[in-house]
Design a protein around this nucleic acid. Structure first.
Lengths: 194, 194
DNA sequence: TAATGTCGAGAACGGTCGTTCTCAAGCGGC
DNA sequence: GCCGCTTGAGAACGACCGTTCTCGACATTA
């Protein structure tokens, strides 16, 4: 059946695009290279994704699922039940991510810088990711009983983005530690013994 | 004299490149467009800068001088003499910068994302800027009498980079405020009355 | 087997961009 | 006035890239 074949091709294309776009940048990777890496002919490729723009958007939405999935799993597994520890675990996860051998910075800001001005689809995918992470963080922070959860969330988002950027430029994982230390200073203390 | 003409042409090219590269990105601006905007012929342009790479590096070094000059002037003028206020003034300056109509994100991380992998010159210019800002900040922080100036500097760098990135994506100036509030929480309190 | 349709491989097209080349105009020195 | 040099304007070149097209191979159906 065509549908099954197309779905399999779609997945192979997405996997190749994900790896290549993230490693080398979107503009640097042509459709030919994605064809070579995925083994899917250009004709089929353009039937799965009508344009490179669509493929870029699909790549970003896939990355979004990956980042938020990994982050949530990590927080659920590593953190103790204390709300404060769960927020700090976000920065532990970042430190793990920065140390991955194929870490090449934030896929979303990279994409935004590269094609955000030309591709409304890509820009929307980036914005959606940012909003989703923001909402997730806001949920963790509300549980800590912070007096002004929105303010604390915004400050933690600055720390999140800053550690990402700093780690990218410096090539080290320590910015996650700096961000974690700073977050510890602005979160309410463990709410006594409960 | 040739030298004077070439120097004048060099300046006009740099001004045009600065405006266009920053506004539209490096890859999006071709040499033709810089010729049109500067009024300097391609031939002369390539005598001033042997390649686009060299022009990009010169653009980044010029931006570096601008950013650090503006920042230092602002801190010198706006801040009271108190060391703590001088560090916080860095984030006030960022807030001013984010509000400028032509603010389009950090020129250095933008350039790094666009051409850092292909241009060693550009990558070096970005690294130099980062080190220079780091050293400047470290000087301000040492004066506050912080117990561990290096640690505080690294945390403030995370805040600096994070507010830049957050402001770029959100299109607002408030991330500078979030960063300032957070910095206020991790700097030592005003060292009593002196 | 013959007709029909589908597919993959790669050529082709149109566009862009960095860089170099052509050519005619202008200018200084004899 | 004439020669040689330099200049600017724009054409030209080569490379790349997103997208579409061609064409031969193969499969399906009757």
């Amino acid at each position: 059946m065509d549908d099954a074949d197309n779905e399999a091709a779609r997945q192979r294309v997405l996997e190749a695009a994900d790896r290549l776009f993230y490693a080398h940048g979107i503009r640097a990777v042509g459709m030919d290279r994605i064809r070579d890496a995925s083994g899917v002919s250009l004709k089929r490729l353009y039937r799965c994704f009508a344009s490179k723009d669509e493929l870029v958007e699909a790549y970003l939405r896939r990355r979004d699922r990956w980042v938020r999935g990994e982050l949530a799993d990590f927080v659920a597994k590593e953190a103790t039940g204390l709300p404060r520890e769960r927020v700090l675990a976000v920065f532990d996860w970042l430190e793990w991510w920065f140390g991955e051998p194929d870490f090449r910075g934030c896929p979303f800001t990279n994409a935004f810088n590269e094609v955000g001005a030309d591709s409304a689809r890509a820009a929307a995918a980036v914005r959606d990711h940012q909003l989703a992470v923001s909402a997730y963080l806001r949920g963790l922070i509300a549980a800590t009983g912070a007096a002004d959860p929105d303010a604390v969330t915004n400050r933690c988002l600055v720390l999140y983005a800053g550690s990402l950027m700093f780690a990218t430029i410096s090539g080290t994982t320590s910015p996650a530690k700096y961000a974690r230390e700073t977050a510890a200073a602005i979160l309410p203390p463990e709410s006594g013994s409960r």
